[in-house]
C-alpha cells in the first residue's frame, strides 16, 4: 500500500476521532494496546489537537470503591451536561495473561448514554497500577472534546506513582479498615494525592481516618501552595460527592491560575511520557531485529561481546 493511501486513511481516522467517534477511538485504543506502531502518525496529530479536560486520576486499595465513585462522578457531571470518558484499569493475571475487567459493572447505568465513554483496560504486565497504553489512550481521548477524563487505577494499595505521571489531579481513595486509622494509611500515599476521599463513611472508623489523614497531610505538605483536602464520602449512595466535585474544580482552578509547582509537574509528566515512548521504540527495535542481528546476540551470549556496548550503540542510533 502506498504511503499516500496510508496518509489519507490516517487523516480520515483523525477526522473521525476529532468528530467524537467512539467506535474509531476504541479501535485505535485496541491498536495502541497491541503496540501497533503504525498508528503513531495518527497519535502525533491527535496529540496536538488536545482539548483541556479535567484529567482526574483515582487510585486506592482494592475494593475501596473506586469504580463506584467513578459511577457517581459520571452521574454528577452528566447532570451538568458534561461529557465524560473513563479509562478503568484492572490487573492481568501474571500466570495466564488473561484478565477479568470488572470496573465497568459498577458504571453500567451509564452504558447507553452517548455522552459517556467507558473503556476497560488490562494492565498487561505493567506495574504501577496502569496499562502500557494509557498514555496513547489519553492522547486519543484528549482530542475528543470530553470535559472530564477519569483514570481508575488497579487497586494495588501502594506505590501507584504512575498515576501522577498521567493525571493532572490525583484523587486518593481510602476506606476505614481493620485496626488503627494511621496504620492503614500506606507509606507513599501522602505524597501523590491532590485530594483525599475516605469512602464507606457509613462504616465505623471513617471519622477517625479523616482526622488522621488531615493531620498527616498538614505535617507533610507545608511547602505546597495547595493543601490537599480530605472528604468523607459514601460512594454507593452519593453522599459527599458534591463536595468532592467542588474540590476537584478548585484544584483545577489552582492549576489554571498557573504557578511554578503546577508547571513543573506538567513538564515532569511530559518528560516521563517521552521516556516511555523511547522505551517502547527501543523495545520494538531490539525485538523486531531491526537494530540487532543474531550474530551480535550470539556474540553476547558467548560473552565475546558485552550487552552494554550494544545498548549504547542502539540509543546512539536513536
Amino acid at each position: 500500500m502506498s504511503q499516500l493511501a496510508d496518509k489519507a486513511k490516517g487523516d480520515k481516522l483523525v477526522g473521525e476521532v476529532l468528530a467524537g467517534s467512539i467506535r474509531t477511538a476504541s479501535r485505535l485504543i485496541s491498536r495502541a494496546e497491541a503496540c501497533d506502531s503504525s498508528i503513531t502518525p495518527i497519535l502525533k496529530q491527535l496529540f496536538c489537537k488536545a482539548g483541556d479536560p479535567v484529567l482526574l486520576g483515582i487510585t486506592g486499595p482494592p475494593g475501596a470503591g473506586k469504580s463506584t465513585l467513578v459511577n457517581q462522578l459520571i452521574q454528577h457531571y452528566r447532570k451538568h451536561d458534561k461529557c465524560v470518558a473513563v479509562l478503568a484499569v484492572d490487573p492481568s493475571s501474571p500466570f495466564s495473561g488473561g484478565a477479568i475487567l470488572g470496573d465497568r459493572v459498577r458504571m453500567n447505568q451509564h452504558a447507553a448514554d452517548p455522552g459517556v465513554f467507558i473503556r476497560s483496560m488490562a494492565s498487561r504486565g505493567q506495574l504501577g497500577g496502569l496499562a502500557k497504553a494509557t498514555g496513547d489512550a489519553l492522547s486519543i481521548l484528549q482530542a475528543m472534546n470530553f470535559d472530564v477524563i477519569i483514570l481508575e487505577t488497579v487497586g494495588v494499595g501502594q506505590s501507584e506513582v504512575e498515576i501522577v505521571r498521567h493525571a493532572s489531579s490525583v484523587l486518593v481513595l481510602q476506606m476505614p479498615g481493620a485496626g488503627d486509622g494511621v496504620q492503614s494509611v500506606k507509606a507513599g500515599i501522602l505524597e501523590i494525592g491532590d485530594i483525599y476521599a475516605v469512602n464507606k463513611s457509613d462504616l465505623p472508623g471513617a471519622d477517625k481516618l479523616v482526622t488522621s489523614l488531615r493531620e498527616m497531610l498538614q505535617l507533610s505538605s507545608k511547602m505546597h501552595p495547595w493543601l490537599p483536602p480530605v472528604v468523607a464520602i459514601q460512594a454507593n449512595t452519593g453522599a459527599g460527592i458534591d463536595r468532592l466535585v467542588q474540590h476537584i474544580g478548585e484544584h483545577r482552578d489552582s492549576i489554571r491560575s498557573g504557578g511554578e509547582v503546577h508547571a513543573s509537574r506538567a513538564r515532569e509528566r511530559v518528560r516521563y511520557r517521552v521516556v516511555e515512548i523511547c522505551r517502547q521504540l527501543l523495545n520494538e527495535s531490539v525485538f523486531s531485529g531491526a537494530g540487532v542481528t543474531d550474530t551480535q546476540l550470539s556474540a553476547i551470549a558467548n560473552h565475546q561481546q558485552d550487552p552494554y556496548t550494544l545498548a549504547e550503540k542502539l540509543v546512539g542510533v536513536l
Binding site: S26, I29, G98, A99, L101, R104, A111, A112, R119, S120
Partner: peptide, 29 residues
C-alpha cells in the same frame, strides 16, 4: 476459566439492556 486461558474478559454482569450492551461492545472494541 477464560481468564485462566489468557483471555481478557470485559465483565458486564447481570441486568443489561440491549442498548447498553451494544454501546459497551463499541466502547470496548
Amino acid at each position: 476459566m477464560l481468564r485462566d486461558h489468557g483471555i481478557e474478559i470485559i465483565y458486564l454482569g447481570e441486568h443489561n439492556t440491549c442498548e447498553g450492551m451494544t454501546q459497551a461492545i463499541i466502547a470496548e472494541d
